[in-house]
Simulated scan of single mutants.
Amino acid sequence: MPRSVLVTGGTSGIGRAVAERFLADGADVVITGRREHLVESVAKDLGAVGVVCTGVVCTGVVCTGVVCDATDPRAVEALAARFETLDVLVNAAGGLGAAQPGPDATELEAALAQWRADLDGNLLSAVLTTTALKPVLAPGGTVLAVGTIGSERRGGSYGASKAALAAWYAMLSAELGPRGVTANVIAPGYIADTGFFQGAMTDTREQALIAETHTKRAGVPNDIAETVFFLASAGARQITGQTIHVNGGAFTTR
């Protein structure tokens, strides 16, 4: 029986790469996003390319798109109601918060708006989604979240929200471990070919980020997707409660 996989924020970048990786393995994948037209088009594209062939028999892999704002409890409840069982949950939704404090906001009001946007998008979205789906997580299942190297350096409110996510996942691991479910955070370094920087990346900054790595290359979404796939495999059942750094050596833990 194919595994059931949910990838929040699965319409682009790392989330889409993760969905593609599980589809290539024959999983039934649900992706979510907030924009209906994008969710529909990406699910259609992924479903079209998600074909598994065994011998001479080819079967289409199921990729379902669901519009869901992961910061909305009612929307998350509706999403969770779709599942009787879930093998892999990947919380990939998030990014730099788009705060809108208003033209007359004070400095403190603007700071509060930015922090709330980042905490909502990166921490609370994962908390709500995971809490809603905990009852249907299958034994031997996996819960993963995308963190950031920014939690270790100059990350501001975005990095702080991801650091809080890692702290919560450590507790989640202890809670889910007796059920045979693992919980880990993957912290990428600089990943090219995503919309994370919202057009603000310059050649100079990119070169500096690459220079910090030991591999002397930018990461790509598939680097993270392969790590996610491994952590959801039988070979990773004793890896839990960890933050796995995937950054080419730009940040080392020793």
Rank of each mutant, 00 (worst) to 15 (best):
R3T: 02
S4C: 04
T8Y: 10
S12G: 13
S12Q: 12
A17P: 14
A19H: 10
A24P: 12
A27R: 08
V29G: 13
V42E: 09
K44Q: 11
D45E: 15
D45T: 14
G47I: 13
G47F: 07
G50T: 05
V52Y: 06
G55D: 08
V56W: 11
C58T: 08
G60S: 13
G65Y: 05
V67M: 12
A70K: 04
D72H: 14
R74A: 15
A78P: 04
L79F: 15
L79H: 08
A80Y: 11
L86Y: 02
V88Q: 01
V88I: 11
L89M: 06
V90E: 00
V90H: 03
V90D: 00
V90T: 01
N91V: 04
L96D: 02
A98V: 12
E107S: 13
A113F: 01
Q114P: 01
W115M: 09
A117G: 01
D120G: 00
L123K: 00
L123Q: 00
S125D: 01
A126H: 04
L128D: 00
T129K: 04
G141S: 03
T142G: 03
V143D: 02
L144R: 01
R153C: 14
R154D: 12
G156D: 02
G159W: 03
A164K: 05
L165F: 02
L165R: 04
W168M: 14
W168T: 08
W168K: 09
A174K: 08
P178L: 14
P178G: 09
T182A: 15
T182F: 15
T182G: 11
A187D: 07
I191D: 03
A192S: 13
T194Y: 00
T194W: 02
T194P: 03
T194K: 02
G195V: 09
F197A: 14
F197L: 14
F197S: 08
M201E: 05
T202V: 09
E206N: 04
Q207A: 14
Q207P: 05
A211H: 08
E212F: 02
T213G: 12
T215Y: 10
D223G: 07
I224P: 06
E226F: 11
E226K: 15
T227E: 09
F230T: 08
L231N: 09
S233G: 15
G235A: 14
Q238S: 15
I239P: 15
I244H: 03
G249S: 09
R254D: 13
